[in-house]
Every structure is written in structure tokens, then in C-alpha cells.
Design a protein around this nucleic acid. Sequence first.
DNA 1: AAATGTTGAGCGAACGCTCGTTCAATGATG
DNA 2: CATCATTGAACGAGCGTTCGCTCAACATTT
Lengths: 207, 207
Amino acid sequence: MKKREVPASVKDERLVKKRRNQMIKGAISLFKQKGFHQTTTREIARASGFSIGTLYEYIRKKEDVLYLVCDRIYDEVRDRMEQAIDTTQGDLDSLKLAIAYYFRVVDELQDEVLVMYQEAKSLGKESLPYVLNKELQMVAMFEHILRRCVDNGVFSLTEQEIQLFAHNIFVLGQMWGFRRWALKKMYTLDEYIQLQTKLLLEGLMKR
Amino acid sequence: MKKREVPASVKDERLVKKRRNQMIKGAISLFKQKGFHQTTTREIARASGFSIGTLYEYIRKKEDVLYLVCDRIYDEVRDRMEQAIDTTQGDLDSLKLAIAYYFRVVDELQDEVLVMYQEAKSLGKESLPYVLNKELQMVAMFEHILRRCVDNGVFSLTEQEIQLFAHNIFVLGQMWGFRRWALKKMYTLDEYIQLQTKLLLEGLMKR
DNA sequence: AAATGTTGAGCGAACGCTCGTTCAATGATG
DNA sequence: CATCATTGAACGAGCGTTCGCTCAACATTT
């Protein structure tokens, strides 16, 4: 899937990158507070440090801002994961570490994750598949680790089970972000990681 | 927590109920298609079968419609659950049945559940806590079943684990609704129920 | 029972405002 | 001075909300 371009007029590459970064940074902080729909293009421009006219030199439609923001957040999460997770080992500890690390990333970027989770649906038919695909890539990272474990006989799962389990890890990580209104009253992040890891690995059956 | 009222002028009780029902039905079908923000009060009125003027005889602000819709959906889900789930047994089978039944309810009402999930955040500071509380009540149904199982020695969990597990069931049920773009390609509902039940109860460890 | 008054649900044109978007003018650069 | 970047006033479509009006149904008077 090719990256959807958000063309502006032909300008200096460096400047475009710089302006886009200002824009993304400003927009994220606004979307965190008020959501995409309640945020005004003028507010985005002001928060980015330039005028409404300049904003429209670097995007075509307001929705382009949302696209750029979602794109950036996914990249941020994926980069952090790739940087810290070892998908080659294939033992139980590296799975546990991957889960723990992923949950910590979600915690660190909880506002950003929340923005994406709540606003991605407002993307048009063009951009949405591209963004959803990025999500599947991240799920695939967990699938990969799980598959390696199965190969090594650490536990045994069907392919169907592997994929579902990977989705579960992904969603239960996000849950720490989008249900914090309930969860933070009950657990610290460390408790959450420890408990979820236990429940994920062992289920609830007496053994 | 008392039900937040959405007062209109003093009118015949029966009629108010009837109009509200028309409104909720029309609004849900619109919100499903286009979301709350993209839906116009005029469209809501038209879909409800009356005029924009009449709409405003029964609400004060557009947001009131969203509140009524969320309220209705939660009640619908809860009613179906209460009707079918036995919280008194406290054995493994009634837990499995509760999970299966809940997942089926989410499937049946997937559009409604999706609407709530995506739009509830747009509720104001007044209504949001009331709606979130309804959600906790549903989580509490699972907690109750789990607690009874623990009492009966079916399995053993700390109170912390019970609460988290209940949240997990709740969220993984909703996951079938909000990630159907990915999940429906991989599983039928029955497969999903069966696999999730297995993973929830047994985890992934070799035994 | 005819004439007259009262009620209140229903209506939709009109209002005021917000917001996304444009573009002619101005500034900066080299 | 030619080129590119920036600006913000202006635009106009679209929105939520209001309010004066209509009219059938019912109540009261004659």
C-alpha cells in the first residue's frame, strides 16, 4: 500500500517538512483537547505558528491534517516498538517483554493513541484503508513473535489462534488508553501489565 | 446516579414518549451512516418523520439527541443481557454462556454499539458520567458471575483480577464490533466466540 | 346545536453565526 | 526584479436554534 500523498504546491522540500511537523505537533495537542471536529482550521494554524493562509499552502482539506496526524502517530508507535522488541528470539520471555513494552508505549503516548482511536474513523474512504493497514502491521509484529514461540514448542496454537491472540494483545494495550477513566482508579501501569500478562498467558483456570 | 432529564415544554406524556422513540430510531440510523457531527438536526427531524420545529419541541440542544440515543442503546444491551444471563449459578458453564450470549448481543447490535463507542465522547460533561456509569454496570454483571465462581472454588482470582477479567470480556466483546473490518475476514461469529472463550479461560500455556 | 373562544402540537422561513476555503496584496530571498 | 512564501480579509455555504404563525380539537357560551 503506497503512502497517500497530500500535495501542496511545489515548494522547498525542507520547508514543507518543517511546516508539516509544526502542523502535526500543533494539531495533535488540539485534537487531544477537543477532538478533530471541534478543532478549527484557524486554531490549527495558530497552534502551528503560522496563519490560516499558510496552512492551506501545505494541505488541501482539513481532513489532510487528520491524515498526517494519524500517520505520524502510527509511525511513532511502530518505531518505538521496533526499536525495543526482539522478534527473533521466540521464547516466552521475549513475548512477555514485548507485551510489557507495548503497554508502556501506549501509556507514554496515551493521548496520541486516544486521538487516533477516536478520530481515525473521520478519515475519508481514501485514507482510512492506508491507516488501518498500519494497524495490521503492528498486530503482525505480535503474530510474528507468537509464531516463533509456536515453532520453538513454547506453546501450541493454531494459525487462527495466533492471529486472534495478537489482536487481543493489541486491543488490551489500547484499552489501557481508552478506558483509563475506569482502569487508572484500580491499577498502576505496572500492576496492569503484570495482571494482563498473567491473564493472557494463563487464563483463569486452576492448574 | 439519577437519570438526566431532557425537558421539553409540558406536553402529553404519551406523545412525548412516541416522538422520542421516532427520534431515537431515526437518529440511530443516521448516526450509523454518518456519525453524530456530520448529521444535521434537519436530517434527524426528517428521519423522525416531523419538522425541524417539532424536533426542538422535544429537545433543547442537538446533543440531547445523542444522549437519548446512547441511553437507549445501553438499556437495550443491558435488557437483553439480564434477560438471558444467569448470575446466580456460579459454575463454569454459566460463565461461558454469559460470554457467548454477550458476544452475540454485540453482534446483533453491532451498529448501535459502534455508534455508542464512537460518539459517546461527544457528550458534554453533564451526560458523560451518567453513560459511563451504565457501562460499569454491565462490567459489574461479569464481575458478579466471576465472583460467584471464585466462591464456589471453580477457579481462584484476586478481586483485582476479577475486575480486570470482567473488563477484558467486555472489551473483547466490543472488539468484535469495532474491529470487524479485520475480524470478519478471519472468523465467523461462532468461531470468534469459541476461540475467545478458549483463550480467555485457558490462556496459551501448554498444559 | 350553532357560534365562539382556547389550547397546544406542528411547522418552516429566517436569523445569526461559524467555519472551511480562497486570493490579491505584501514581504522575503537571492 | 523575479520567485517563492506568507498573510488575513473576504466569501458564502451550512449549521443549530428560534419564534410567529396555523389549525384541528376541544371547551364554553348562547
